[in-house]
């Protein structure tokens, strides 16, 4: 059970250790880029129905396909907590659902690895629909019931926004983890 890639810890001085730890900053990129999507979702687009796509859920979905090790359920949970705080929802609605989404993607990837883009899109669509229904249920559980039908708008826009989020994450993936980067 020993890690064969561990650095020669005793042979490094303080500066080298610091450089070694700071060399891991890329591990935070999936979480940070998803947090950016959460922030974008608070954009001042004033429409009286919730039409803004669930970018954060799509971000969690795409990153847990691209970098399953860097978007585990507990990271998705933390992203969801921030989303709850920012969207004035009861603490735990998005946190639970994002964490479950990352877990579900992990199971699906183990089951059907290496699949086509359109299959991903379909999976994302199904996930968004389930997400909105569960949001409706969990808001009622948290004591703040909301009507279900207006959330349909968000389902439609989220399914339409999937290619955008996938392109955004793929671009970051190429820049940060691409083949020309030694990891």
């Amino acid at each position: 059970m020993m890690n064969r890639n561990a650095p020669p810890w005793r042979l490094m001085d303080a500066a080298e250790r610091r450089r070694y730890w700071w060399g891991h900053w890329r591990m935070g990129i999936p979480a940070l880029s998803t947090l950016l999507l959460v922030l974008v979702m608070t954009a001042p687009l004033v429409v009286p129905v919730p039409v803004f796509p669930q970018l954060a859920l799509l971000g969690v979905f795409v990153w847990s396909i691209f970098q399953p090790g860097l978007m585990p359920p507990w990271v998705a949970f933390l992203v969801g907590l921030v989303a709850d705080l920012l969207f004035a929802q009861p603490l735990g609605v998005n946190a639970t659902l994002f964490a479950s989404a990352a877990g579900v993607v992990r199971v699906l990837e183990n089951r059907y690895g290496h699949h086509a883009y359109n299959f991903d899109w379909g999976m994302a669509a199904a996930m968004v629909i389930v997400f909105e229904v569960l949001t409706w249920q969990l808001m009622a559980l948290a004591g703040k019931p909301v009507p279900l039908l207006p959330l349909g708008w968000q389902v439609l826009t989220s399914i339409a926004a999937y290619p955008l989020v996938a392109a955004y994450c793929a671009r970051i993936q190429r820049r940060a983890f691409g083949p020309d980067r030694a990891r």
């Binding site: 585990p72 507990w74 949970f77 705080l85 603490l91 964490a99 990352a102 559980l141």
Partner: peptide, 27 residues
């Protein structure tokens, strides 16, 4: 860990139901 995290989220939800004004400072 995944199961624990999801269970923790549900516990948070129940806490939010009992005490809706929690985490006001963080908000």
């Amino acid at each position: 860990v995944s199961g624990a995290v999801i269970a923790g989220g549900l516990v948070l939800l129940l806490v939010a139901r009992v005490n809706p004004d929690g985490a006001a400072r963080m908000r």
